[in-house]
Amino acid sequence: MIDPDHTNTGDSLKYNEAGYLVAPKPGDSRWGQCSLVLALLFPFFALLNKWSWLPSAELLKSTRVFQILLKQGLLSDQQVKNAQFLLACLFVSIFCSVLPYFKRNINKYSMQHPPPRALKKLWPPQIRGTIAIGVLLFIVPVIAANFVEWGAPIDILAPKGAMFIALLLLSEGIYFAAEGSACGALYTYFYLKYWRLDD
C-alpha cells in the first residue's frame, strides 16, 4: 500500500501519490537547491552590463555558440564575462551538492540484498529522462544560434526576451544533465559493487 503523504514504505523508498518512485536526487540537499536557484537566476545577471571587475571570458569565447552570439551582436563582451562567472558558480555549487549526496546515500541501499526492486528497476529510466531533458534544453539555444549564423532571421534571438530564454535553457540544461549524471554515477556504483550479484 502506497502512503499518500509520501513517507517511507516497507521497501525504505518514497513514492508520490501516483505511485511513482521518488528516487534520491542531488537537488534534495541545500547545495542542490542552491544550484537550482543559480540556474534560474543565471539569465537575469548574465544580461547585466555592470560587473566591470570580472576577468576575461576566454573559455566561453572558445565555444561555438558564444562565438556566434558575440559575432551577431546578441551578447556583449561584458555579458559573456558575466555568463562565464555565473556558470563557474553553478558548476561549483553542483559539485558541492554531489559530495553530500553520495555521503547521504552511499550506505542507504548498497548493503541491501536483494536491493529494493523499485529502485533498481525504476530509477534508471528516471536518470535517462533527467539527462535527456538537460540535453534537449541545452541544444535548443545552440541550434537557434547556428540557424542565425546560417542565415535565419536574427529576430530569432535578437529580442532581449529571446536571449533571456536562451540563457535560461542553457543553464537549466546544465543543471538537469548534471543532476542526472550524479544519479547515474550513484546507481552505477550500487549496481557494479552490489546489485549485479542479485540479477
Rank of each mutant, 00 (worst) to 15 (best):
E17Y: 13
E58P: 08
L122W: 07
N49G: 06
K121H: 13
G161V: 04
P159G: 02
Q79M: 06
L41N: 10
P115V: 00
P43S: 07
L169M: 15
I131G: 01
F85A: 14
L70R: 10
T130W: 04
C183Y: 00
F147Y: 13
I174G: 02
P55M: 14
K25C: 10
L60I: 08
Q33A: 12
I2L: 15
V98H: 04
V98T: 02
A177K: 01
W31H: 13
T7I: 05
L21I: 03
L70Q: 14
V37S: 06
S181R: 01
V98L: 02
I143D: 15
Y20L: 05
W51I: 08
V142M: 13
G134L: 11
Q112L: 03
R117V: 10
P125Q: 04
V135Y: 03
N49Y: 09
L59G: 03
K121L: 15
L54E: 12
L119H: 00
Y101N: 05
Y109A: 02
A145Q: 06
A18W: 12
P100V: 10
L41M: 15
V80S: 11
Q72K: 12
T130K: 14
G32W: 14
D77K: 03
Q112C: 01
W51N: 02
D198R: 09
K71H: 13
S171T: 00
A144E: 14
D11Y: 10
G134E: 12
I174N: 07
D155C: 10
P159K: 03
R104N: 14
K50W: 15
F102K: 12
L21E: 01
R104A: 14
L87F: 11
M163H: 02
C34R: 08
A46K: 04
Y15P: 06
Q79A: 03
S62Q: 15
A152Q: 10
L54Y: 05
I156S: 08
T188A: 01
Y194I: 03
N8W: 14
P153C: 05
K193S: 09
V65E: 11
G73E: 04
I143L: 15
S56Y: 07
P153N: 06
L169F: 15
K14F: 00
A46W: 03
A83V: 07
G134C: 12
A162P: 02
G134T: 15
S56C: 07
S97F: 13
L70D: 13
Y15K: 04
F95H: 02
Y189T: 04
